[in-house]
Nucleic acid binder design. Sequence first.
RNA 1: GCGCCGGUAGCUCAGCUGGAUAGAGCAACGCCCUUCUAAGGCGUGGGUCGGGGGUUCGAAUCCCUUCCGGCGUACCA
Length: 554
Amino acid sequence: MNYKKLITELINNPLVTENDITLATEGHGDFALPCFKYARELRKAPQVIASDFASNLSERDFIDHVEVAGGYLNFYLSRKARVEAVLADCADKTSIKAVRAENAGKTVCIDYSSINIAKPFHIGHLMSTAIGGSLYRIFKYLGWNAVGINHLGDWGTQFGKLLAAYNEWGDKSRPLTLNDMLALYVRFTEESEKNPELAERGRTEFLKIERGEPEAVKTYELFKETTLAEVNKVYDRLGIKFDSYNGEAFYNDKMEPIIDELNAKALTEVSDGALVVKLDEFGMPPCLITRSDGATLYATRDLAAANYRADTYRFDKSLYVVATQQNLHFKQVFKVLELMGREWAKDLTHVQFGMVSYEGKPLSTRHGHVVFLADVIQNTVDKAKAIIEEKNPVLEDKDEIAENVGVGAVMFFALGTGRIKDVDFAYDKVLSFEGETAPYLQYTHARCRSVLAKGGDIGEVDCSLLTDDDSYAVIRHLDSYADTVRDSASKYEPSVIARYLIDLAQLYNRFYISGRIITEDKKLTFARLALTKAVADTLKEGMALLLINAPEKM
RNA sequence: GCGCCGGUAGCUCAGCUGGAUAGAGCAACGCCCUUCUAAGGCGUGGGUCGGGGGUUCGAAUCCCUUCCGGCGUACCA
């Protein structure tokens, strides 16, 4: 319910706009209007203005009373009416449906995860995967048509090297694994330093792939399939989905028209043998289109990809969930597209996130300073299992619940704080199951379900029984759910929802402890069960947006 | 050098489209399970919101400046 708007209408003064209404500080009602800013124009003291507004209020059924305190006019809403409205909205989803109606027909492309073929899936990939996967769900939830794109790193000379290494040392008698490929690649890098002939072999093998020689392509496809098969297991555990796996290889034949167009529009020039688009007047270094040897670059592929997505999906927004390191790259690409006259260039956004390090040092596959995502998940799941054995050994489906709790903990680690901050991965953080964590949310949800199961059917609810401070605090928070999800989408920031859910769980737990829900008093029991149900449903829906499952029991 | 981002309690963070006493979690200490899930709740201690200017009735929030840290800065992605 948009009370700010209602209050503004109630005051009905041209000076007062909706944005002037603020949430009241603890102990000062629900909403407040600070009247200081009108003092100059009205030539009156703020307190006087507040009292004037108060005495001129029109019909006000949703307000219980107002109070003038200092220069503030405080609004105390009619709690009973608000409880009714919130419980009704939780049940029929009116406000969420309204948001969906606004967004119907809109399309958003989300480029996320974007892993490299033949490279291990480590915690460095967690952020893009989790943030993108969450945004994918959030946008869908809000009525958008979302297109999830895994822009695979499946092209480049490293595949020639890997092919050479595989032909030389690969064990063809058993199925290839991701670890084998990593080992082969490392060995190749080491040995080719001593043996230049080997390095040359890498280049010629890549040429074979480029030319489409069947033998080479077959092995290259094997690398790709092997990687995807393993990585998909992780995606499945995390609940991550994609609609397209078109990556670098896919755009190989789509760059030439872009280069031709850039040349035709006289945007390019040759500099030190390379073809570039100069961006000096925009305060940026030039955007490299082709190398001096004629090879295309990262930017070239992204220009082609952006065009392809625009043509194919007709997006209203296109997001790139990529680390902040690539800030300049995207600025350049977006600017070049704008210079090419693409009116949709304004709809492209680099959704950047901070760097992931491990024990204070940057991650490095080559130096073995990596943490594999599958291992992290397994560790959190194992710990969840151990806690279940300790606290609730009679629980059914222990493995499934441990899986949900462990994966949830990993997701919350990635999505719980603002994405722009750098994060240092540490096991004690992901393995923490108390306080502001996914297990806390899941626990609260399971607690709700448990009470609901015991409480049975909910009869007619008397909303006046939920106007005490503990109950009303929960209601008030539930009231901002739809706005919170919308805010999270507009900021491309899943952590907004994470914070919201933590607060909701805290408020509910306080309510839960403050008195019994199921009592002899039928009417009171129904009212409290209704509140519990609203909280449980909201927690579950909100967690799903963060890729966190909500088990019924734990 | 220039550009982007961060700097809030011992630690991890929220608040940053300006509003009333700056909030959580973790860690520390002290309480609360014969009663609906203690993965929970309550309480105590803990803050020059990096520093300095400015704008304003009012600044963690806006502007300027400065320090510290991360990242980027043409043929990797």
